[in-house]
Design a binder for these strands. Structure first.
Lengths: 203, 203, 203, 203
DNA sequence: GATGAATGAGAATTCATTCAT
DNA sequence: AATGAATGAATTCTCATTCAT
């Protein structure tokens, strides 16, 4: 068991080191040696835990998918109404990505490539997120909080795009302001829009 | 003159071939030989027009920045009111990116990397876009079409993020549906939001 | 220990192969592949032991500087009087350079270039030699064997130049005559000069 | 004729530019483009006057051989006695090499390489010099100024080596002192040697 | 003669992956 | 399991030389 734990430890250490190195330099600019050094193991050891360099990325997205989406699911479940669910989801998203900058960087880079490296894992991850959003929208429509005349596919893109861009801007800014504090104004914008309501139309 | 034209031709040919190859395989997976072959020139010829591999990307962003943003500016100027301006901008954006898929792919990939290759060029390009959006928002606020209680920085991210994600989804979808047709519903979403207006608040 | 020895062996093997190839073809005409082939290793292996091609030359001069100058120092110490010291030094010099023709060729070539490759190492090596000669001259002047009306800097050049040229001529001659046998007549020439003593001046 | 002169002019310009560039950077580090730029002609033009890069060096040594050795011959003829002849030769040598630093650098570099580029030309040049020295020695022996118990081959090396080393030291020194002023003390050293004459032997 | 754009062979160097220890 | 030395394929970039204009 101690052995088993050690094994897992080394796997985790390599995985985290790789993510750190990938985030700092980019996947292709990173070398196995750098990862090995960061993890404090020999180059060859990495191949005992991962098939090859790309496999590390696959494992990373697999691992993070599970871990983060469990949290996202919890966040959505933590509120009854659609707006609360969306607020919780986005807030949790921003919290997690702020906490793990390396993950945020890798996620941004790989989800916006066309010939993705961990294509399957990313597709699955995206699907999970899209499903969460779809669920919220549907719920909101049932409870009368969200318009029924919406193309849901577009709503998803609006939400995901806005959140991604908030994170992207944060990653490229020097002053590290507090990311999760953007959740509330963002949800407000998503629900209310940027336009002024025209009372005349209600007359 | 024929000489001059040929020179320009070869520069253009290499640039376009490079963008094509970069878009198909990613920058680092692309080789100079592939680009040369695609352009129908010798490997060495590329170095007569570009300092090195990365320089091609820099030239590409420089060239496209000028070309595309002239069009974006025209689009914004093509309408009086803020909503029209935004609609025109987004529509033009989607039209241009649909027309040049290679550009769209490169743009998506490079604007979401942290250690960007053509950093300066991308920053400049982003700035131009952000300024256009800021201008629209300001105009909208003056004419009473856009809320005054907005954090403009966040509005920019909402808009840009949504447009980017619409493009990103299109790039990753197989069936190539018509991208510019997303402009209208997207602008509607941005202005009206996803939420239902609550008449009770007007009582 | 066997491991350690092998490591040293490979380093030595590459170094010696490189010197051989450099001597045969010149530094710039030599390729890493030729050196690797000569040493019986893969091209990449060379970079495990040397930073780059020039670094091999630096290591060579560093290594030889130490080894050869220890011998030169011993030779100088092996005689009491200045003439004996000089004879020993030159003899040892010729012996060593005859024994290691590759070294002799590299030394000749690099010490007479203006934009030297292993500049620092060569400067240091030259300094050591010049110091040895200066020491001999000073000693000779004290014991009354060497003229006091000499510009020592010039004496050094006379000696070093003569020795170098003797070696240079040997390197460019086909028939490999015995180099060290030139030591005695050379020292005689250096001490007595080529001119005939004029008794009239003693009258 | 004007045409002919122009041709010669361009030939000369390229030759001198090449020597300058070779001296500054070394033969292999110099490019045809650099030489062409320095000469103010197109790259291709060089191949109208020279077979290839190495051929420039061949022409240089051929040209300089003739030019310089005419001067050396004159210098030797300018004195009656051997010592005067040697003094004149060395003085002229130092004057010429000081005046044309580029030539001096190239000469030093190429005469001390084993796989020389302009081998034949250098051999011829060396032979001419050696013959001059041999002539002086022979003359000196006839007139009773130079010892008869000398191995003339070694005397040549002593003289040439000393002169070369004086030049070499000058080339590698920063402060550009006056080179020809070394001629007199050098000739004195060569004739009288560094040793003190022992009157006892005359008793 | 003169040009200089184009060529493509060739070289240095890197690095993912393997495998003997 | 762990190591890290060794490999060699692959890539970028340079530059002597050619040749159409």
């Amino acid at each position: 068991m101690a052995n088993n734990k050690q094994k897992t430890d080394k796997y985790q250490r390599i995985l985290e080191s790789a993510v750190k190195v990938f985030a700092e330099r980019g996947f292709h600019e990173s070398t196995i040696s750098q990862i090995a050094k960061e993890a404090g193991v020999a180059d060859g050891t990495i191949y005992l835990y991962f098939k090859n360099k790309e496999d590390i990325l696959v494992h990373f997205f697999n691992f993070k998918t599970r871990q983060v989406f469990t949290l996202f699911r919890e966040a959505v479940n933590g509120a009854e109404a659609a707006e609360g669910k969306l607020r919780n989801l986005i807030h949790r998203h921003l919290v997690e990505f702020q906490q793990d900058r390396h993950m945020a960087i890798l996620y941004q880079a790989e989800t916006h490539r066309t010939n993705r490296l961990a294509e399957n894992q990313i597709r699955e991850m995206s699907k999970l997120y899209l499903d969460l959003v779809a669920e919220i929208v549907e719920r909101g429509q049932q409870e009368g909080a969200i318009r029924r005349d919406l193309y849901v596919g577009l709503v998803k893109r609006l939400i995901i795009g806005a959140v991604d861009e908030v994170i992207n801007t944060w990653l490229h800014s020097d002053g590290n302001y507090d990311l999760p504090s953007m959740a509330d104004p963002l949800v407000d914008l998503l629900f209310r829009g940027i336009g002024i309501r025209q009372p005349s139309s209600l007359a």
